[in-house]
Amino acid sequence: MPAQMPPPWGDVVLWGLIATVLMDVILEAAQGLGFSRMSLPFLFGTFFTSNRSRATIVGFVAYLIGGWFFAFLYFLLFRSLNIYSWWFGMIAGAVHGIFLLATMLPLMPFIHPRMASEYHGVTMVRQLEPPGFMAVNYGYATPLWTLIAQTVYGGTLGLLAQLHLMVF
């Protein structure tokens, strides 16, 4: 996309929605089919409330907003390197996924107000099972499915940006 061309922010909103929905479908399917017990919307939602039904809804909304937000970051990355391609999106998604699994999720017991830790045990407030390194506590296949979902997310954004460039 030429630098003088205005960024298509409205389109990025739509791309972000599509990519987030795809990523969520993969993660929910992995959970529903028994490959993983991880639910990112539930983890996000319980940041805000201990009411399970509210947490699931709030978490899903937060997750969707997060997906949109990262879509803009991905687009800025594509634009800064002038690489609008599905394969580059997949690489970005995979790196993002590894960062999430190796760094963000293990940090959760220290930042999540309702998550227990293997050092401090369970309290009246902190009762959620921690994810552990690469989130393997939620099932040994969790890292694999998270990586697949993140890679599809990045790949979808890259592909949509690539198609946009071809059309315009």
Partner: peptide, 12 residues
């Protein structure tokens, strides 16, 4: 017991 979800651990 938890099936297919993040476990919740009730305080002992």
């Amino acid at each position: 017991f938890t099936h297919g979800d993040i476990a919740v651990l009730p305080p002992i």
